Computed example of a mutant assay.
Amino acid sequence: AQGLGGITTVLDVKILDYPCHAASLPVAMIPNCAATRHIHFKLKGDGPAVFEKPDLDTWPDIELPVDNIKRINIEDLSKENLSQLKVGDTVLLSGKILTARDAAHKKIVEYKNAGKPLPNGVDIANKLIYYVGPVDPVGDEAVGPAGPTTSTRMDKFTKDMMEMNILGMIGKAERRQPTIDLIKEYGSIYFIATGGAAYLIAQSIKKAQRVAFEELGMEAIYEFEIKDMPVTVAVDSEGNSIHSIGPAKFRSI
């Protein structure tokens, strides 16, 4: 689930018990990611919480309209033609993108405020920024698992990034309204990649190299060369958000 509606969010929960004093009544849950995924329940001390299994017939039949998938060379994208991509479009991206997570964004803004160019001649203007911290490759891999991180954490940096003329962003989860307004104001775009599919996404990454802030390790800025990376337009250049439209559409089914 990508926060677009639907009734599946938790796919797996592992609870590990560990020797401790019984009076502490310990309970631990470790979610994969805290982004808008939670459940409410009460523990009354009279046994485990029980949840009713959902009716599988509740799931609607969904078929991916393969004919509507758009293959796009990133080199052909510009602020002038981003308007051709609409919220909900499924896109296969090919070309070069840059990565940046929290730590890299913080450094980028520090360099911007100091009036300094980014190290090694890195230029984020007219680039797609992928919110990811990739795992080191194994064997002949270009990169290890490289799934998106939660985009809302980068909202506080978005105005600075827009002022540096980035083309758009790739991540997961919704954006706050001020960020959506900035995307519309600057004619930008926000794609979502599938959370939890880090290994599969990595198959679309053909080359990877660190290009700035190597001291940050996996949070350094990388340049990825990608081929048919699957993404969905989550906020288009007109400010339409799939995280508003998607749930409303599902509720109407």
Results as ranks from 00 to 15, higher is better:
Leu4Lys: 02
Val10Lys: 04
Ile15Arg: 01
Leu16Phe: 04
Leu16Ala: 13
Tyr18Glu: 15
Tyr18Val: 10
Ala22Glu: 14
Ser24Leu: 10
Ala28Pro: 00
Ala28Ser: 11
Met29Arg: 02
Ile30Arg: 11
Ile30Met: 09
Ala34Leu: 08
His38Lys: 09
Gly47Trp: 08
Val50Ile: 15
Glu52His: 07
Lys53Val: 09
Asp55Cys: 07
Asp57His: 09
Thr58Lys: 14
Pro60Arg: 12
Pro60Ala: 11
Ile62Trp: 09
Val66His: 06
Val66Phe: 02
Val66Ser: 04
Asn68Leu: 08
Ile72Glu: 02
Ile74Lys: 04
Leu77Ile: 10
Leu77Pro: 00
Lys79His: 14
Lys79Ile: 07
Gly95Phe: 06
Arg101His: 10
Ala103His: 04
Ala114Tyr: 01
Gly115Arg: 08
Lys116Gly: 04
Pro119Val: 11
Val122Ala: 13
Ile124Lys: 03
Ala125Met: 05
Ala125Trp: 02
Val132Lys: 00
Val132Ala: 14
Asp136Glu: 15
Val138His: 14
Gly144Glu: 09
Gly147Asn: 11
Gly147Trp: 02
Gly147Leu: 03
Thr152His: 06
Met154Ala: 15
Met154Leu: 14
Phe157Leu: 06
Thr158Asp: 06
Met164His: 08
Lys172Trp: 04
Arg176Gly: 11
Leu182Gln: 03
Leu182Arg: 01
Ile183Leu: 09
Lys184Gln: 09
Ser188Ala: 12
Tyr190Leu: 01
Gly195Arg: 01
Gly195Ser: 02
Gly195Lys: 00
Ala197Ser: 13
Tyr199Glu: 15
Ile201Leu: 15
Ser204Pro: 05
Ser204Lys: 01
Ala208Gln: 03
Gly217Gln: 12
Met218Ser: 14
Tyr222Cys: 03
Val231Cys: 06
Val233Tyr: 01
Asp236Lys: 05
Gly239His: 03
Ile242Leu: 15
Ser244Glu: 14
Ser244Cys: 05
Gly246Ala: 06
Gly246Val: 02
Arg251Trp: 07
Ser252Met: 13
